[in-house]
Design a protein around this nucleic acid. Sequence first.
DNA 1: AAAGCGGGGCT
DNA 2: AGCCCAGCTTT
Length: 344
Amino acid sequence: MAYFSISIHQWFRQSSRSLPWRKTNNSYKIWLSEIILQQTRVDQGLNYYLKFVENFPTVFDLAEASEDQVLNLWQGLGYYSRARNLHFTAKLIVDQYDGVFPTAYKDVLSLKGVGVYTAAAICSFASNLPYAVVDGNVYRVLARYFAVDTPIDSTIGKKVFQDLADELLDREQPGNHNQALMELGALVCTPKSPDCENCPVALMCQSRKEGTQLSFPIKTKKIKVRKRYLHFFVFCVKDKVVLLKRDENDIWKGLYQFPLIETDSEILSGDEVQNRFGDITAITDITLKHQLTHQTLFATFHRVFVDEYQTLKGEILVKNIDLIDYGMPQLLIRYMEDRDIFTL
DNA sequence: AAAGCGGGGCT
DNA sequence: AGCCCAGCTTT
């Protein structure tokens, strides 16, 4: 076997973290862990994984849950389409596969929320099938090891790195090989300060020879952040508040929020409030800044105290103590905790 | 091919 | 403030 694979295997046996999804070959649990970990650090996803396994021990339990329950449990983890697709796929596996998680790569890849990385991960971890994973860690490790200057965020780059990973794959134990490669990226070949002194393949690492580790991997696209101004109206109706579900293709789809007026600047005119809600007395509370990857949100909260409220289409009245059961954006959770709205 | 989608940790 | 994370879907 090749130097690279032998070296990372040995390192992996000695230095890998003990993680719950590595102790099973239950493809349901492996699938669950992979969806949770998409674009998410292990430290952040671990508790969610434990919660989900506890609440939904089998795919049948997940399929029987409501989407609201699943989103509520997913609350705070971000990229909520993952939760909606997870639930959709659980129902599909029960309906179309009698609850038996598919094994063949093409079947796994066809599942909603499963792309080429996740399909390769599930197939190699659960069934030891020879598919090479390419995630953010793999891009970084391979780009540095071979000093590949092809941008990873280009179509050609994706192919170059997938081909490289395919060639490098240890076909005797693809599952261990894939995990070792990713673990190396997560623990040693880290983005900002790689621990080359303790890297098992430092001897043959091309970028280390050149001292150019930090210039890899190459990315061309820059993140552009747009500003948004959100005015939330917290209608307090005795011991209840008004919520509605976000159903647009926008951030937080599927989560619940307070009635909202979005504006082009921080200015909200009285006319806009009048047109939307009629004659109300709103007390402007506070503006919170909330940073998402691609958006900077300025959320101003207005409190409206009324004895009665005629709900409009899609709106519901929820007791404050029951708010905990609704999946809501982290920004609103933060506000409600600050104002003790959960217990009001 | 490019844009859109969260939240948190690290530098 | 910018970058990155066990990426995928939609446009």
